[in-house]
Design a protein around this nucleic acid. Structure first.
Length: 846
RNA sequence: GCGGUCGUGGCGGAAUUGGUAGACGCGCAGCGUUGAGGUCGCUGUGAGGUAACACUCGUGGGGGUUCGAGUCCCCCCGACCGCACCA
């Protein structure tokens, strides 16, 4: 009996597939296609085990669909622009381009031994001038189609390094390198008009049948459609040309509880006042230190500045409300001004308590008149509450009814109008950085902003740049900016902003359908291959990447680059979980954790091997180099082979959940594959058959197939274990076993393709297993003729009954009541109730 | 802070979607094989209880709906993901 040697077997079959060009995606117009795509990786330098899990799942689908007869497209590329390359250049002096392409080369070589069924001939990186040149062409078409415009937007500004910072470069409100307090600065930037499509993007979510409900919900919440009231509060005196303040509120029903007006520090009125009031000007600057993230704004301490102005209360003649400038009011949303109703909004309440403003209840719970003290009363809009004070005159109603009534009342009174707002903002695509796709426009003194001519694309990044000083090297390049104006030919300057890397990843799936086309896409290829039938990636992309891609597909359709059928580019989405690993730590003298590599730890004794010191084990933690709990796929493949790694990442955890990598689990996977190989060897030919094995085979085919179809790979793996156990324990003859094992190999082939090929060829299978058709279950063998029904007494299982499948209800009743456990429970009495669900369960209530 | 998800034996997890909780695997124990083993095979394994049954408890905690709840509803606790310039 030969021992299975992955180290020689795996490269052998990888070469066989390559020689036969097995995985080349070929457009066959008479055949159905299937497009499987995993979110492409950022070339960080090494693949990690999360990549292995992601690509293995995609590979299972790709190989399975291929053996079902589909023409499969399964490509791979690189999301290659972005900050880490510039950071590396700053840290060690290299060039982002070299760093990126070197990393890609390393990662490609690490990925190939996994035996993925990828059509590598379609590979590209988003930093290839060919790719980003096509992206520039898309930009120009979208600009012409009025899908892109310029406006001012706020960025994080590091006043010491004199550069724009990404949110992740702002740590506790300070610049990551300089440590200076981050300021906010307005720059004129390019924007995609995604908000014009807010309604459409929201409505179309309903049609995404094969997307996870949670992702659809998150997208809908992100788009954030709300109906509210826009109304003006008249100032008691006109100041700097303002005679009122417009507010937008989604809770107009709380108008009677208004006790102050708050405006954003960037509100035009606040700015006008700040010109005269240096304290307010200082306040506005002070309050905007720290980052621009929504999280930073919302968790910051609520601060306000009393302008001394007042507005007239729209409901009560003679009453006025004070006007404050407040840091928690955002200029981006609504009108940049709100009325504060402390009784029914926690932020407003915190603010009111801090600055001693009044709190006026407008409604209370139906059965509890308690007034608001330190916790705002904010029931769901669907709850019915009792109104103490309501301009529209309702007294008991749900929040939503009161909102609708108030809007109607306000409209008839002429003090406001109902308005639908979206939370979704336009997508700012400008980045003040080098390593991105240059925005192909030219600034001309005479003509203004002029699009570059398409024949001059790609506008390539210059190579001769350095990163010695912070800031954008394109800005300070001696010649790169100089170019003739595409309109008048006079000397002009190029735009130095580059594109957000989300742009790169918003259409790569379309480019894969025709990676060498001379336009962004080829109409025939796009029509054939789009949409992506199965998209697989992490939940962290649930909102931005997927929403931007949905927008882009629509924009590409409007500019003639995608067919109308492709405006929702991903037919099915699957979000997979992380691969985690335990952290092993001890404590230093100061109680800080000291991390240890798994190989330095005695897992069973929970001690450090070298010193015997006890360790703390933190299970299921995200892998992180600094915590020394990273598993390198390259090591795993060296030790066990790719099939073991693939089998492990599909086992145990459902794919959408996190899976914990353990050495014991990897070992178990390796042992199982060895056992399957031993089953397949030393089996003579034979023409015998075995009905029990045939039935088990039919069941395995049925359940494994269902597992793959529903992304229940862990269930398929469990079923394959059972099937292998059944074959092993069967006393059938060699012919029947050979037949069962050939099917076992086929069922395992999407998961462990190398072992499957080896067994297939060993047992005389025809050609490559990768080209064999997926086995079909004999339906007749799947039908069971008897069922075992549990018998419950008061909902607890007490016994069971095995009967022919179509036993009538009366007979079930009779047999159940004759059951020993039931008779014991009844103790001579008649049952109170008898519930019989045919084929399911019998429940006797006593 | 806002939005979203998850919580089941010693461990990873299953449960046909309201119908036998713990499939499958790891670990552990016993037996056999090997007798060099990071080998292989068989059997057992939620907790309590019993000679063995019976029985009792049990799906993060508390309450509810139901003949029946891991699954549905409410409250609480904990972990994780996203929050628009990380990718």
């Amino acid at each position: 009996m030969s021992r299975y040697n992955a180290r020689t077997v795996e490269p052998k079959w990888q070469k066989a597939w390559e020689d036969a060009d097995t995985f080349r995606a070929v457009r066959k117009d008479n055949r159905d296609k299937y497009y499987v795509l995993e979110m492409f990786p950022y070339p960080s330098g090494r693949i990690h085990i999360g990549h292995v899990r992601n690509y293995t799942m995609g590979d299972v689908i790709a190989r399975y669909k291929s053996s079902c007869g589909f023409s499969v497209l399964h490509p791979m590329g690189w999301d290659a622009f972005g900050m880490p390359a510039e950071n590396a250049a700053m840290a060690s002096g290299g060039h982002p381009k070299d760093w990126t392409y070197d990393n890609i080369a390393v990662m490609r070589e690490q990925m190939k031994p996994l035996g993925l069924s990828i059509d590598w001939s379609r590979e590209f990186a988003t930093c290839d001038p060919d790719y980003y040149g096509q992206q520039q062409a898309l930009f120009l078409d979208m600009l012409a189609a009025n899908l892109i415009y310029r406006k001012e937007a706020t960025v994080n500004w590091d006043p010491v390094d004199m550069t724009v910072l990404a949110n992740e470069q702002v740590i506790d409100g300070k610049g990551w390198r300089s440590g200076a307090d981050v300021e906010r600065r307005d720059l004129t930037q390019w924007f995609f008009k995604i908000s014009d499509m807010a309604e459409e993007l929201l409505d179309a979510i309903d049609g995404l049948d094969n997307w996870p409900a949670k992702v659809k919900l998150m997208q809908a919440n992100w788009i954030g459609k709300s109906r509210g009231l826009r109304m003006a509060f008249n100032l008691t005196e006109t100041i700097a040309d303002f005679d009122n303040i417009e507010v937008y509120t989604t809770r107009p029903d709380t108008l009677a509880g208004a006790s102050f007006i708050a405006i954003a520090p960037e509100h035009p009125l606040a700015r006008a006042l700040a010109e005269q009031d240096t304290k307010l000007a200082d306040f506005a600057i002070d309050v905007r230190k720290g980052g621009t993230t929504e999280e930073a704004l919302e968790t910051a301490e609520k601060l306000g500045y009393d302008t001394g102005l007042t507005v007239k209360h729209p409901l009560y003649d003679g009453q006025t409300l004070p006007v404050w400038v407040a840091n928690f009011v955002l200029m981006d949303y609504g009108t940049g001004a709100i009325f504060g109703c402390p009784a029914h909004d926690q932020r407003d309440l915190d603010f009111a308590r801090k600055y001693d403003l009044t709190v006026i209840d407008t409604f209370v719970a139906i059965d509890d008149d308690t007034r608001v003290e330190s916790t705002a009363f904010v029931p769901p809009k669907t709850d019915t509450v009792k109104w103490i004070n309501q301009p529209a005159g309702v007294d008991v109603a749900t929040g939503q009814e009161a909102i609708d009534a108030t809007i109607e009342w306000a409209e008839t009174q002429g003090i406001g109008t109902g308005e639908t707002q979206f939370r979704l903002r336009d997508w700012g695509l400008s980045r003040q950085r080098y390593w991105g796709c240059p925005i192909p426009v030219v600034h001309c003194e005479d003509c203004g902003i002029v699009p570059e001519k398409k024949e001059n694309l790609p506008v390539e990044l210059p190579d001769d740049v350095n990163f010695d000083i912070p800031g954008n090297p394109l800005d300070r390049h001696p010649t790169w900016r100089d170019t003739p104006c595409p309109a008048c030919g006079k000397a002009a300057k190029r735009e130095t902003d580059t594109m957000d890397t989300f742009v790169d990843s918003s259409w790569y799936f379309a480019r894969f359908t025709s990676p060498d086309a001379e336009d962004p896409t080829n109409a025939d290829d796009a029509a054939y291959w789009m949409n992506v039938d199965q998209y697989i990636g992490g939940v962290e992309h649930a909102i931005l990447h997927l929403l931007y891609s949905r927008f882009f597909a629509r924009a590409m359709h409007l500019t003639g680059h995608l067919p109308a059928s492709a405006i929702e580019p991903f037919n099915a989405l699957f979000t997979q979980g992380m691969v985690t690993h335990a952290i092993y730590q001890t404590r230093d003298g100061a109680g800080r954790p000291v991390y240890h590599l798994p190989e330095d730890v005695d897992e069973a004794a929970k001690t450090l091997r070298a010193t015997g010191e006890p360790i703390e084990v933190i299970p299921s933690a995200k892998m992180s180099k600094s915590k020394k709990n990273v598993v390198d796929p390259v090591d795993i493949i060296d030790q066990y082979g790719a099939d073991t790694a693939r089998w492990f990442v599909l086992s145990d955890s459902p794919p959408e959940r996190d899976v914990e990598w353990t050495a014991a689990g990897a070992d178990a996977a390796w042992k199982f594959l060895g056992r399957v190989w031993r089953l397949a060897t030393d089996l003579p030919e034979g023409s015998d058959t075995d009905p029990a094995l045939e039935r088990a085979t039919a069941q395995a085919i049925h359940e494994v197939t269902q597992g793959i179809e529903t992304f229940g790979f862990n269930k398929s793996v469990a079923k394959l274990h059972e099937f292998a156990n059944t074959i092993q324990k069967s006393d059938a003859g060699p012919g029947a076993k050979r037949q069962a094992i050939k099917t076992l190999a086929q069922l395992m082939s999407p998961m462990t393709p190398h072992l499957a090929e080896e067994i297939w060829s060993h047992l005389g299978g025809e050609g490559l297993i990768a080209n064999a058709s997926w086995p079909k279950a004999d339906e007749a063998l799947l039908v069971e003729d008897t069922v075992t029904l549990p018998i419950q007494v008061n909902g607890k299982r007490r016994s069971e009954l095995t009967v022919p499948k179509d036993t009538p209800k009366e007979e079930l009743e009779k047999q159940a009541l004759a059951d020993n456990a039931v008779m014991r429970a009844l103790n001579g009495a008649a049952p109170k109730k008898l519930i019989i669900v045919p084929g399911r369960i019998i429940n006797v209530v006593v």
